[in-house]
Design a protein around this nucleic acid. Structure first.
Length: 339
DNA sequence: AAACTACACAACCGCTTTAGT
DNA sequence: AACTAAAGCGGTTGTGTAGTT
């Protein structure tokens, strides 16, 4: 299993490919196929490393490569697959005809990743972020936006969707924490109690209610989600649209039901927008496959945009009293946890 | 207009896996 | 089974460009 000989031992050209080089490579492969990449570079009169030739061909020159922006549906597929497969770009790419692993990886790192972070979702675990600094920032944001809303002229310049976003994130994070309450009750399994140094009177939910942050910590507190909690709301949980599943899309059919760790028995009770596995990579595929596909809502709920359902869910109630009620409820539940 | 910044994407690097002997 | 070369893969870096100050 030795390493392949390094190209820099030979004096080969590096850096961006010229049009002339591209033409030589395309011309050669069209006539002879690529065969051995190492010998190809010499035969095609390219002063390039074989690896470089292969990469240029597979990532750029191949005729079946799909160019242009990723569609919403492609984005959704990528996110869903990533939640199951992790950074297995080539495996993800296998489900997106015409897209290369490199392209998907770049798209993820420059686009989706940031988008998820902004929404309070950890792009690695696909769980809501639960570090307290993040929650406190949201809390402050909410508090400030409430102040802003009391003035007709909105001196802080907050836009409604900022408030909206902050609420969405708060809700997610609260649900995440509530879902982990079993773990808190059994902290013996954890190396430390993440909330051990917060006194009961400083129940974070009470702080969120007021939009204030009175906890002073030097270091960020990180909550461990543990392995046991079940379902969390997802902002991107829809699988393919109906159109796709009927073959209306060029995307290869993806059977998410075989990939996800979904707690089937709780499925019917859940009134929240559709859900995604909270810790998919922890679960085994056996568990995933034990779920009856018929119980899955993910492939049966077409959505125009990735986040529509969550937004509808949040928009359905008038803001103030609803959120107060919800937060009160959440606070009560949370207080039963040993803070 | 110049300098700076952020972003997108192509390409490289080095490790792992696969296939052939 | 052991070894090697080639291919595959994922993380990282470099570069061009658009947007902002």
């Amino acid at each position: 299993m030795g390493r392949s000989p390094c190209c820099d031992e030979i004096s080969v050209k590096k850096g961006p490919w010229t049009q002339e080089e591209d033409e030589k490579l395309i011309d050669y492969i069209n006539k002879h196929g690529h065969g051995n990449w190492g010998t190809l570079s010499k035969r095609a009169d390219l002063n390039r490393c074989g690896k470089s030739c292969r990469l240029r061909w597979t990532n750029y020159l191949r005729p079946d490569i799909k160019r242009g922006k990723f569609t919403d549906e492609e984005e959704r597929v990528i996110i869903n697959l990533h939640s199951v497969l992790g950074n297995k770009w080539s495996k993800i790419a296998a489900h997106l005809p015409g897209r290369t692993d490199n392209e998907i990886k770049n798209f993820w790192n420059t686009n989706i990743r940031k988008k998820l972070l902004k929404m309070g979702i950890d792009p690695e675990t696909h769980k809501p972020r639960t570090d307290y600094n993040h929650l406190m920032n949201l809390s402050n944001l909410l508090g400030m936006s409430n102040i802003g809303n009391t003035f007709s002229n909105n001196p802080l310049g907050f836009q409604p969707d900022i408030t909206h976003l902050a609420k969405m994130q708060l809700l997610q994070n609260m649900l995440q924490i509530m879902n982990t309450n079993n773990s808190f009750g059994n902290m013996g399994n954890y190396p430390y109690n993440p909330l051990g140094n917060i006194t009961p009177s400083l129940n974070p939910f009470n702080l969120f209610l007021n939009g204030t942050n009175t906890i002073q910590t030097k270091d960020p507190l990180v909550l461990s989600g543990g392995e046991e909690y079940n379902m969390i709301p997802s902002l991107y949980s829809h699988g393919q649209s109906e159109d796709t599943s009927k073959g209306g899309s060029s995307l290869e059919s993806v059977d998410y039901s075989k990939m996800r760790n979904i707690s089937c028995e709780n499925q019917e009770e859940n009134l929240l927008p559709s859900l995604v596995a909270s810790s998919p990579r922890i679960s085994t595929f056996n568990q995933m496959e034990s779920c009856n596909k018929a119980q899955m809502s993910i492939d049966e709920s077409p959505s125009n945009t990735t986040f529509d359902d969550w937004e509808k869910f949040l928009d359905d109630e008038s803001n103030g009293s609803y959120w107060k009620e919800l937060l009160d409820l959440t606070s009560t539940s949370a207080s039963q946890i040993s803070w």
